[in-house]
Nucleic acid binder design. Sequence first.
DNA 1: GAAATTTACTGAACCGGATAAGTTGTGGAG
DNA 2: CTCCACAACTTATCCGGTTCAGTAAATTTC
Lengths: 337, 337
Amino acid sequence: MKRPTIADIARRAGVSKGAVSYALNGQPGVSEATRQRIVAIAQEIGFNPNSAARALSGASARAVGLTLSRPARILSIEPFFMGLISGFEAELAARSYALTLQVVATPEQEIDVYRRWWGERRIDGVIVTDLREDDVRIPVLQQLQLPAVVIGGPGDTGKIAQVWSDDAGAITETVRYLVALGHRRIARVGGLPDLLHTQTRTRAFNDVCTALGLNEAVTMPSDYTGEEGGRATRRLLIGADRPTAIIYDNDVMAVAGLAVAQEMGLAVPGDLSIVAWDDSPLCSLVHPPLTALSRDIAEYGAHAARELLAAIDGKQVNNVEAGTAHLTPRGSTAPPR
Amino acid sequence: MKRPTIADIARRAGVSKGAVSYALNGQPGVSEATRQRIVAIAQEIGFNPNSAARALSGASARAVGLTLSRPARILSIEPFFMGLISGFEAELAARSYALTLQVVATPEQEIDVYRRWWGERRIDGVIVTDLREDDVRIPVLQQLQLPAVVIGGPGDTGKIAQVWSDDAGAITETVRYLVALGHRRIARVGGLPDLLHTQTRTRAFNDVCTALGLNEAVTMPSDYTGEEGGRATRRLLIGADRPTAIIYDNDVMAVAGLAVAQEMGLAVPGDLSIVAWDDSPLCSLVHPPLTALSRDIAEYGAHAARELLAAIDGKQVNNVEAGTAHLTPRGSTAPPR
DNA sequence: GAAATTTACTGAACCGGATAAGTTGTGGAG
DNA sequence: CTCCACAACTTATCCGGTTCAGTAAATTTC
């Protein structure tokens, strides 16, 4: 089936291609009567402008790119990214931008994808997640002058906009809450250590523990997987002065930690309190339901999408903080026995 | 930064645009020496063909579309879709096709998205999930002559290819296994009732229960969410002759069911055996780990992607079955007390 | 009422590739 | 030595929009 073009509309309306273009784009240069006639014909024959032709004649591709850089076995379970994608989408769809997705294995491959997408003019901008220290992707994005928004910071990204949430504030609140419950030995199972927001959390965790006079702030590095989270938990719990509370950097590890505690015969929250970072249905599903640091991930994604669209439109964008996660107490936290 | 075009390469190589196009696409019409010179220049200046220009001159858009039609709160936790996406991607990336994603709320909106994508020539084909009975999307796809592959069947989709897995065989195997363990009262918490694969499962479940002489095959309809799965479980367990085993149509509901059983003071697997459909890290994370119907979801997605690419290439594709899920016994199933 | 301006268009160039058709130059057959 | 076939290009056109430079008619201005 031949898809209709503006030439078809022009023929039926008895005007030139140019007039049709003006009419459909709300440009001046056609009378209101003609415009309505053209729009009606376009509607009737189900016209959609060929995105390739549009992109070729200088306009934008009306698409943005996102790479997912974690291995499939983590992605498949990590609710965070799906929430983020939903949030982007809501914002992008409203301005009829498409979202192009690619799964990558390494930062180098990710850079290649950006290079290719930009070179092909397939996208107008990208959303970058998991900012690292001295991130190799940043200079490439700057060199390409590819509009971008970075999620996870704050860090040094030059003129590239950032969207982040106040992780330091959230972890401080959490530790204070646990201390108020009576906990003195609080440990943490962290995310990937080279991610900037993991470092932010670790630093804030150490600071607040010192400030409150707690002995030592142990952070077990991990990788967001359930297996690693479980292993880290086991290592924390076999010591003589085991912690009475553990904060996990994501929900998956927290659920795994809960399973390990139960397997070792520890009561939750009686013997061990558990806090998950990033609330998700997962946290309410398990028994006991997990106390979690909630934030609106979809809104976080929507925020990033808005910033990116602004950057694409050439507006100068600044680093924005998109709200602090707040503690949602559930059944997994209580005073230690 | 101006992105290089074939005209730039042509100038530097001292040949015409046409020669560059032939050289880069492996077409005959240039000598091997010239071809290598051109390829070297393209490499050096980091040339990527403008996808819009390419798509405009008759070639394909080198992109396929996927809509996600469940509400965000389910998508965010359902590991199935992420696994599927990973699988597509592996296959698409290998042939440098892009994946365009859109979250939709209703089948009607989904149809609109297909119409727009196809009209805009943004994509070459789509992957359709969650086939229903008399699915409204199928006639639209046929009318548009939009290459497509349907996941979840088998059903009547005319010439549109389908990829499905043998759900009937899997559920039969599961029921036989539970009966072999000594269970006589087996219930099921199903997925959305209007999905075709849910109906296939329900029918097979009823059939095998009848064949094995079990009293009644109760299927509680649900919607894949943890909340609904938990509610359905509670309803099943409050009866006098409560089931000793429950099969869940996805992992999220199974985890929720486990929590409900524990909350009601029932031992798993002592008082209640649990089987989850679709294995995921989630199933191994909880305590006890859940017996699950495992299948390689990523491979399932890769299979669908291959079929779609074949359909785009104009090859006649047939309905293919992509393997049966097999039972992975873990700690959540045992003989009833 | 003639000149100046505005309105409502048309025609053509352009974006960056793909490709059909035309143009050389070379080597081999006859 | 000529003719032909073929390789190795060049030239020109096309894809479907956007946009700029024209143009004729209508309207305003003094």
